[in-house]
Design a protein around this nucleic acid. Structure first.
Lengths: 332, 332
DNA sequence: TAGAGTTCCGGAAACGTTTTCGGAACACCA
DNA sequence: TGGTGTTCCGAAAACGTTTCCGGAACTCTA
């Protein structure tokens, strides 16, 4: 009978119809557990999402959109997703427990989001066990581990170039969480472009943040307190950019007239806030889709080598820099 | 050997230790599929999230927060969640396919989010099959189907009262998606409070929306075009409130000076936007937690009757009404 | 018409657990 | 010393599929 459902072997047309009718009538649904047991394929993808202790409630809309892109693409390939995230402290949350539970459920693959420790032992065990893994914004080493990210370096350069083109020379940055890959890359891009433009970075112009709003606000206050405050700042996330603008206004200055700000991400908030944020847009859904594609490839084809995908970003200029509106440039 | 893991029977202390050591060394993880097969319990909860065709990308942050509360609570009870949402059109998305797949995976329970059709046949089948179901913002009938929602009626009344207290007499509303329960309840509350206050509703003062920004903008334009436009409006969602404010400003009027606006939800955006939104706060995470609690109860105790939970809301006043800041009142 | 080939289908093993059953080993009491 | 309990553990059945194997029935060819 099962032969009917899995195109496998030879069944007469008549029997096929008979079985199908019977299945329809009894509203038969194959049992996933039994199937998984014998096929050694669960058709399940684990998504590990760990935004850190400080902001356990996923206030950062970025990941959500990646998740949407992921599901969208994964669903089309017949996979369902098991979501690991936001656990109560007691229940052993964190990537550690997540990776373990993913293994327990026999997932066919895992995508890792917003985890910042590539060395996590349970994660390593997962990779070592041969489970395909793709990480977004995190470089993972392994036979079957791919990597997906936006062009963070290029994006940062784009931001700095834009500011420079507007006449700014005292350009500061508010960096993201120090040990994360995207924060590091954006900082690298900032420095590289500054150098390229012949600008010498001033001391104190690299303020630290953690991607979230409050840190942007604090960082901006520090920047404003400098003997020679910047006239423009590149924030490594939109949330921090919003925080920065708030700090600017609290200090009695104005954005963009006194200080120009450009963000990174282009979350929905960016265009709703006032002044609307000039920012570097990441295609978040595409990021998710790319991750899905990489993962499915890794699963289906044991021979595939893991690969890294870097997605293009674009500058979208709104009001927070005082330039004319429109999408001004993009980078691949 | 399995006796060790499931407190079940009698094992000598020595053997127990021996098995444990062995398990540790081999990094043994029980196979979920096999266990599910025999125990008829998957420890899996299906979450069905269907935001509709028009906004398939879950731009509405509300559901996300509910999801966080859900996972938080569910994780503590040892359940993992299977997320059904945002599928590519081709793959048979929608609550229909989702409910089917949930059944296929043998979930122990289902929580239904943002689905607006209680009659959906596949959903009904799920309920009929005895699977515990709890719906957020959707009244589901069934032996084992609970219902969780915020006090939408009370919240709407609170909003209207606040506006009235500020001196407004021409109070309009922008309603949510017509056939959804929360939209209906908020409209009911609006009408009830108007009546209570002795205000007669003017024709055209009940504008239609769909919870999302653009609809709020359009509805507000319609309201402004009325021969006697309102001086205050209660929008059934924050997103629509933001849209309304945008429309007000586009028309050359100002908020709150010319027209006061109060929203509903208190999403993160509400306090970031300018003017910051006065709104009715729902405790979204609590909503998720309540849903989880109901569901687990339904699962664990076959005898439990389904029940409805209505969570309190509170008015948080910011700038969009021109009143003093602070949490002014709350309702149970 | 006998043999070979083809088409279909029934039956059985296997997947990794949980749970039950029965018995081995031992201790205790009379 | 024989009977009666008690404590532990090995063995086996069951869960619902997939997949493989072999055979029945039928069709073709010589």
């Amino acid at each position: 009978m099962s032969r009917v459902f899995n195109g496998y072997t030879d069944v007469s047309a008549e029997t096929r119809l008979r079985v199908l009718a019977w299945a329809r009538k009894l509203d038969y649904t194959p049992n996933a557990a039994a199937r998984t047991l014998v096929k050694r394929r669960s058709q399940l993808i684990g998504v590990i999402l760990f935004t850190g202790e400080s902001h356990p409630d996923l206030q950062h809309p970025f990941f959500l959109e990646v998740l949407v892109g992921l599901k969208h693409s994964l669903g089309a390939d017949g996979y369902d997703v098991l979501l690991f995230a936001h656990e109560q402290p007691g229940s052993g949350r964190g990537p550690h427990a997540y990776a373990r539970r993913a293994r327990h459920h026999g997932v066919d693959g895992v995508v890792v989001l917003a985890v910042d420790d590539a060395e996590e032992p349970e994660l390593q065990k997962l990779i070592a066990s041969g489970t395909p893994v793709v990480a977004v914004d995190l470089a993972l080493a392994g036979e079957r581990a791919s990597y997906v990210a936006s062009d963070n370096i290029g994006g940062a350069r784009l931001a700095v170039t834009h500011l420079h083109g507007l006449g700014h020379r005292r350009i500061a940055t508010i960096a993201g969480l120090a040990h994360t890959k995207p924060a590091a890359d954006r900082l690298l891009g900032y420095r590289a472009e500054l150098q390229e433009l012949g600008l010498t970075p001033k001391p104190g112009y690299e303020a630290a943040g953690d991607f979230y709003l409050e840190s942007g606000e604090a960082a901006m206050r520090a920047l404003l307190a400098l003997p020679e405050p910047p006239t423009a700042v590149f924030a490594a996330s939109d949330m921090m950019a919003v925080g920065a603008i708030r700090a600017i206004e609290d200090a009695g200055r104005r954005c963009p007239e006194d200080i120009a700000v450009v963000g990174f991400d282009d979350i929905q908030l960016a265009e709703l806030v006032s002044p609307a944020l000039t920012t570097i847009r990441q295609d978040k859904q595409a990021l998710g889709a790319a991750a899905a594609r990489s993962l499915v490839q890794l699963i289906d084809d044991t021979e595939t080598a893991p690969h890294v995908s870097v997605l293009p970003v674009e500058l979208v200029v709104r009001e927070s820099c005082g330039a004319a509106k429109g999408v001004a440039a993009s980078v691949t």
